[in-house]
């Protein structure tokens, strides 16, 4: 063990480089985990496992957010998604009962696979443009670090994006009203129209 460290030292790697390499490895590992978890979401036959894999996926993404200097969003991701939304999912699964789903190679699935494969290739083509050169933006890393991520977002939100923010609040209100009307009132109308 000590020899290995000595060897590393002898390569004349300074602290920064080592931490950089470590961070890159970490990011890569987390990204791969996220991909594997998302595969788990769609491949598990039982919804409960899908939900758990989704939680893993979201946690990984929250970690990635952290590593990309978005502390506030990482917190929101954990609290809103992994916390509230997924709890909701689990509740519903518990309520409706989780049933295994049969897999088959129907036309629908094959065609879906083909189309999504094409889509994936097309999306990967966006990588052909190469690395993005950092530009001198309005809010540099230093500024964010000075005031803190949450505060910086708050300032930005209330200065430049106030209308989308208010619209989002309106959207939530509408969603609340919609849920109440869906959950509260009887659904005779729906039943009448349904063909069994």
């Amino acid at each position: 063990m000590m020899e290995f460290l000595d060897q590393l030292w002898s390569l004349n790697l300074d602290r920064e480089t080592v931490f950089g390499l470590f961070e890159q490895g970490l990011v890569f590992a987390i990204g791969m985990t996220a991909i594997l978890a998302s595969l788990g979401v769609i491949l598990c036959a039982t919804p409960i496992y899908s939900a758990l894999y989704l939680i893993v996926n979201m946690m990984c993404l929250a970690l990635l957010f952290l590593l990309y200097n978005a502390e506030f969003l990482a917190a929101v991701q954990v609290i809103v998604y992994a916390g509230a939304v997924m709890i909701l999912f689990l509740f519903i699964i518990a309520l409706l009962g989780a049933k295994k789903e049969k897999r088959d190679l129907s036309f629908q699935n094959l065609a879906g696979l083909g189309f999504v494969g094409l889509l994936f290739c097309e999306l990967l083509m966006s990588m052909m443009v190469g690395e993005t050169k950092p530009v001198e933006g309005r809010v540099t890393l230093e500024v964010v670090q000075q005031v803190g991520s949450a505060k910086a977002i708050g300032i930005e939100l209330f200065s430049h994006h106030i209308i989308p923010f208010e619209l989002a609040s309106l959207l939530l209100l509408v969603a609340v009203v919609g849920i109440i009307s869906l959950a509260k009132f009887s659904n005779k109308q729906l039943r009448k129209r349904t063909r069994f």
């Binding site: 991909i35 769609i42 699935n109 966006s126």
Partner: peptide
Amino acid sequence: LFVSATVFSIGALGFVIR
């Protein structure tokens, strides 16, 4: 780009086949 494209495609696939 790679990670988000992959996860997005997997999501799309799941939406279509499940």
